[in-house]
């Protein structure tokens, strides 16, 4: 090897090392940040945990005056509003993804996807405002009909204020729909063409091909999209705070006002005066953190489980 080559090799190796350490530091910084956050949440909430113990999670009183704190109404509000959003946006999102990926011509599909992604970029305050001006009166207008015809179910009873669990679920479903649709579409588009052709050559119709080949192949990816959306819904704050009614109670009726973990944090954190109140709020923040973390981990695990690296002869 010539001298010049050796020198070049050396500097290259040095650059290589620099790059490695740089990347390592960046990676460690991210991990460190997450760890610091978890630590801060833990130490900031220790009073609440020592005062109420794990019962904090299933106690339903929330009274800053008498200093009784329990997270259940918020946990309930977060889970139910997210589940509602998923029940609406899940079938809708997957359905539209099937349409966009399998039936619509590619150009129309791409155009639709562009608008759907714009929807995902709308700030949540703006959506919240739309919720106040459109969804709240809308829900108030249709609820008498629901009460009359579905009133035998406990979910559709009581006084329709307009704000409440149903409205929150609706606005959340609008927020997560773009995620479900665009990721599911992407996953469906990645189904190998030869597999679809195999089904078609057997005499399958378009829909049968979707059912026989595309959906099973894309299943884990679609599930991942749904869980990613769920993670998003669980943590969503602004829009929900604006339309859910912010009342810490547990009621089966979807018309009743409720409260979510994110919303109570946004509303009370700045005004909390007593240490216990502050720590109780931090305990809620920690719970929410764990919940969304778990949901995202699940989603990622499922998306990575998509059978793309299958053995081919």
């Amino acid at each position: 090897m010539s001298k010049g080559g050796a020198v070049a090799g050396l500097t290259e190796r040095a650059g290589d090392r620099l790059f490695r350490y740089g990347v390592l530091c960046a990676g460690l910084a991210v991990v460190g940040l997450a760890a610091a956050l978890a630590l801060e949440l833990a130490s900031g909430s220790r009073l609440a945990w020592s005062e109420f113990g794990p019962a904090f999670l299933w106690s339903s009183s929330w009274n800053p005056v008498s200093e009784r704190f329990g997270a259940l109404p918020f946990l309930y509000g977060t889970l139910v509003s997210s589940a509602l959003a998923l029940a609406i946006a899940g079938p809708l999102g997957v359905g539209s993804a099937i349409f966009l990926a399998e039936l619509a011509p590619r150009r129309i599909s791409d155009a639709c996807c562009f608008f759907i992604e714009i929807l995902a970029a709308v700030p949540s305050v703006v959506l919240g405002l739309m919720g106040i001006f459109i969804l709240v009166p809308g829900v108030r207008a249709v609820s008498p009909f629901l009460i009359e015809h579905l009133g035998f179910l406990p979910f559709f009873r009581g006084t329709p204020y307009g704000v409440g669990m149903l409205t929150a679920g609706l606005i959340l479903s609008i927020m997560i729909l773009p995620y479900i649709t665009s990721i599911s579409r992407e996953v469906l588009l990645s189904v190998p063409r030869p597999l679809k052709e195999a089904a078609l050559a057997l005499g399958a119709t378009r829909w049968e091909t979707v059912r026989l080949v595309s959906l099973p192949y894309a299943r884990s990816g679609i599930l991942g999209a749904v869980f990613l959306a769920l993670g998003r819904a669980l943590g969503e704050t602004m829009a929900v705070t604006m339309v859910i009614g912010n009342s810490p109670r547990i009621s089966a009726s979807l018309f009743d006002p409720a409260y979510t973990m994110a919303a109570v944090l946004a509303n009370e954190l700045a005004e909390a005066t007593s240490d216990l109140h502050l720590h109780a709020l931090m305990a809620i923040a920690g719970t929410l953190f764990m919940l969304t973390l778990g949901m995202n981990a699940l989603a990622r695990w499922m998306i990575l489980g998509t059978p793309t690296a299958r053995r081919r002869p």
């Binding site: 030869p194 597999l195 195999a198 050559a201 026989l212 299943r219």
Partner: peptide, 12 residues
């Protein structure tokens, strides 16, 4: 019916 160049059994 048709059989293709690359074997394409349904993977799932």
């Amino acid at each position: 019916g048709m059989v293709f160049q690359r074997p394409n059994p349904f993977p799932t």
